[in-house]
């Protein structure tokens, strides 16, 4: 089964301390960084929601969260996951592996930075980053300097 054919893997969250943020996260947890995403939820930094209020004011966005090591073999799956995400969508690179390859920067099988595959709006450094760094990264998404990489064709670059 490919990522493309899986039903509704996204989860909806409120971000504690940032009521304007309403995020739908597709977490592609590929390595230890994924545990920190879980830690953010257990610590109450991200609060799971049944549904998202898209009507009232706020920053509503779908987030592709790549938390872990992307290998070249997996790259097509990442591109498909990005394509399935509802607009408006932004991609977050979480941790050293996703950012640059990190500890595996010299490995022949690891993708050196997932920004080669999809447009990244926020890079969060760490190995792994703290759960608080994830929240800081999500907050950064709502800043005006972040460009929404929307694409009318629904295709990623």
């Amino acid at each position: 089964m490919t990522l493309h054919s899986l039903p509704s893997l996204e989860s909806r969250y409120r971000v504690t301390g940032h009521p304007q943020l309403r995020v739908t996260i597709l977490d592609v947890g590929l390595a230890c960084c994924a545990l920190e995403v879980g830690a953010a939820i257990t610590a109450g930094l991200l609060v799971p929601q049944e549904s998202i209020d898209t009507e009232s004011d706020g920053f509503v966005v779908s987030v592709l969260l790549i938390s872990g090591t992307v290998t070249d073999a997996l790259a097509p799956g990442i591109i498909r996951a990005w394509a399935t995400l509802e607009e408006p969508r932004l991609a977050v690179s979480f941790g050293a592996c996703a950012n640059t390859g990190g500890p595996y920067w010299d490995a022949p099988t690891v993708t050196k930075g997932i920004d080669q595959l999809i447009p990244i709006s926020v890079y969060i450094p760490g190995c792994p980053p703290r759960p608080e760094a994830l929240v800081a990264g999500l907050v950064r998404l709502s800043q005006p300097s972040v460009v929404t990489h929307s694409d009318p064709s629904g295709e990623s670059r």
């Binding site: 920004d115 969060i124 608080e132 760094a133 800081a136």
Partner: peptide, 12 residues
């Protein structure tokens, strides 16, 4: 300190 996210890879 942990909030060092950036909007570009060079920003890290």
């Amino acid at each position: 300190e942990h909030d060092h996210g950036a909007t570009t890879a060079a920003g890290l």
